[in-house]
């Protein structure tokens, strides 16, 4: 035994050396230089991008309506698809200079270099998340809503307290789950699904009484996916602040000021409001839970 363990010592050392040799080359950290004021810094050729001259956008797959259409973020359809296209144009990119990559939500906040310049898939801006990534200026104010089957006893609820005994479901990673836990505080723990599609199956199976989703998705669900379901109501924003969707960027991304500039100008010239009209259903007549 003893001899054999010593015999393998050189081999072990060789292995170790090989390991050391393949240790990562000290990649130069992308230094974030603060933007010089002035329009030049945001010219396409001056932007620090993942791939020079190309805006790489990330979205989850599948990409659901009404945020995207036909599972193709690049077609500029659906609210987020249209916003992304408008932002890219505003920043000065030709449509041929925009590429899309599929990025699962869970990977969008992974440490290290990102494989996108900006990620857009209904990500809510929260202070805790903002410690890890950068968020763009908000492009949408989201309200959370409750979808139930029409025959459900909870379909007629008007107050949050009436929902206490409901078995509710939501998609993982959504702030809908926070709404359940903090606003409703139901007696039964919420079910948490990989996608709203799975939550939809559970609702139709009677495994849950209701799904909490953002209002536009609730409209899409009740209009297209589950005709025998209805929107019981929407939730008032917690602590008075509306929930907002923003694009996710790498922490310290040099692109952020230019992206924000584009979103801000699209907000102030009414483009975003127009796109909202075009792609998202009219949300004014949904009762708010008291």
């Amino acid at each position: 035994m003893r001899t054999s363990s010593l015999r393998f010592a050189p081999l072990a050392i060789a292995l170790l050396l090989a390991l050391v040799a393949c240790s990562p080359n000290d990649a130069t950290e992308s230094t974030t230089t603060p933007l010089a004021e002035g329009s030049d810094a945001c010219n396409v050729e001056n932007l620090t991008l993942m791939k020079a001259g190309t805006l790489t956008l990330g979205a989850d797959q599948p990409a659901y309506p009404p945020w995207f259409e036909d599972n193709d973020p690049a077609n500029g359809k659906g609210y987020e698809g249209a916003v992304a296209a408008a932002v890219a144009t505003e920043m000065g990119f030709e449509s041929s200079q925009v590429t899309w990559v599929a990025v699962p939500f869970n990977k969008s906040f992974a440490p290290g270099r990102k494989d996108f310049d900006a990620y857009i898939t209904q990500v809510s801006i929260t202070p805790k998340r903002a410690e890890v990534v950068d968020f763009s200026a908000a492009y949408y104010n989201a309200a959370q809503a409750l979808v139930t089957l029409k025959k459900s006893p909870f379909a007629d609820a008007t107050t949050v307290t009436e929902l206490a005994d409901a078995k509710l479901g939501a998609q993982i990673g959504s702030t809908s789950l926070t709404t359940i836990d903090e606003q409703i505080q139901p007696t039964q723990a919420a079910s948490v699904y990989d996608s709203n599609n799975d939550a939809k199956s559970a609702l139709q199976n009677g495994q849950i009484d209701g799904i909490v989703v953002d209002l536009p998705t609730a409209f899409y669900m009740t209009a297209v996916q589950i005709p025998d379901a209805t929107i019981a109501g929407q939730f008032p924003p917690t602590s008075g602040e509306p929930e907002q969707f923003g694009m996710v960027l790498e922490k310290g991304s040099p692109l952020l000021p230019c992206l924000d500039q584009a979103i801000t100008s699209l907000t102030s010239d009414g483009t975003l409001a127009e796109l909202e009209q075009q792609w998202l259903a009219d949300e004014t007549n949904v009762p708010v839970f008291s």
Partner: peptide
């Protein structure tokens, strides 16, 4: 079994991760 909505260990961890962007 988490795919059915059951909040077991990995799902509970996933919820926390998605909430805080910390794995």
């Amino acid at each position: 079994v988490a795919v059915l909505g059951v909040v077991e260990t990995v799902r509970a961890a996933g919820i926390y991760a998605a909430d805080t962007f910390n794995y």
